[in-house]
């Protein structure tokens, strides 16, 4: 079953249509990079898939269920574009914050137990930040913060991980380290990953599939197909295609050649 599937999905803010008839599916174990220029609807697409925004027309589903009726939230890990605005002053330890991820799928009163505490320890250990467990979240560096937020998204070992511009506030070294971590986890885990990024060149190095948006779908498929498509070379220009595909091959060769 597809992790996300949208059919003729349109979303509008007021009079302006942000997404226009998007049909797309992210299958099990696929690693998708969702790229496109600013305002192309990347974040809107994932927010609509998660039920945070309502579609104007068309449908979207999570594991075959409309977001409004979806209740298996423990299958989803989400790292939003902007962390909580309260982050720097918020009185919470890393453990407490990652523990919030375990509330997904629980019913009222959503009490956390020993297995939840152990899942938190495992998630922090997996991301190499176990030593931060008792640190106040406002004391973390940008790189540490993203790892901790990723730990929260991963604490349930989700089948679908959605990351919205996760490296926006990171320096190049932290960004590289974050992407390597993600690629490693994808190799080990097999969950579907949807990475929203404006950094299409770097995304090409790690993701297997590409969704190129500009309010509508410009390309949806594997990087392999994208790089070998003369239509895409015509659409984006050979330089843009080369920039993405250069990273994907990892050999400095442009796939378009």
């Amino acid at each position: 079953m597809n992790a996300i599937e949208s059919v003729e999905l349109s979303v509008a803010y007021g009079a302006g249509r942000v997404l226009d008839r998007i049909s797309w599916r992210a299958g099990p174990g696929e690693f998708w990079a969702v790229v496109g220029p600013n305002g192309s609807g990347k974040t809107t697409l994932v927010k609509t898939a998660l039920g945070l925004l309502q579609p104007q027309s068309g449908t979207v589903s999570l594991f075959g269920v409309a977001p409004r009726r979806f209740d298996a939230w423990q299958r989803i890990g989400y790292l939003p574009q902007f962390a909580s605005p309260a982050f720097p002053k918020f009185p919470a330890t890393v453990s407490e914050m990652v523990g919030l991820g375990r509330l997904a799928g629980k019913r009222f009163p959503r009490l956390l137990n020993r297995s939840d505490a152990s899942a938190v320890v495992n998630a922090l250990g997996r991301l190499g930040v176990a030593d931060l467990a008792n640190r106040r979240i406002g004391e973390l560096s940008g790189g540490q913060r993203q790892r901790v937020l990723l730990a929260r998204a991963l604490v349930n070992r989700p089948d679908l991980l959605i990351l919205d511009e996760p490296t926006l506030a990171l320096d190049p070294d932290s960004r590289e380290s974050f992407y390597n971590l993600l690629a490693e986890m994808h190799r080990q885990g097999g969950s579907t990953i949807v990475l929203v990024t404006h950094d299409s060149a770097t995304a090409g190095r790690y993701a297997s599939h590409l969704l190129y948006l500009d309010r509508t779908v410009l390309f949806s498929g594997t990087f392999h197909d994208f790089c070998r498509s003369p239509e895409m070379a015509k659409q984006f220009g050979p330089f843009a295609q080369h920039t993405i595909c250069h990273q994907h091959d990892g050999e400095g060769r442009s796939c378009a050649k």
Binding site: L52, W73, P80, A86, A104, P109, R110
Partner: peptide
């Protein structure tokens, strides 16, 4: 006490809380 974790989650970040089904 009963709504502690829900109050905590929404206070921290209501978008992420919503994606946890809250």
């Amino acid at each position: 006490l009963l709504a502690y974790h829900e109050l905590f989650a929404v206070t921290f970040d209501d978008t992420s809380a919503r994606v946890a089904g809250i």
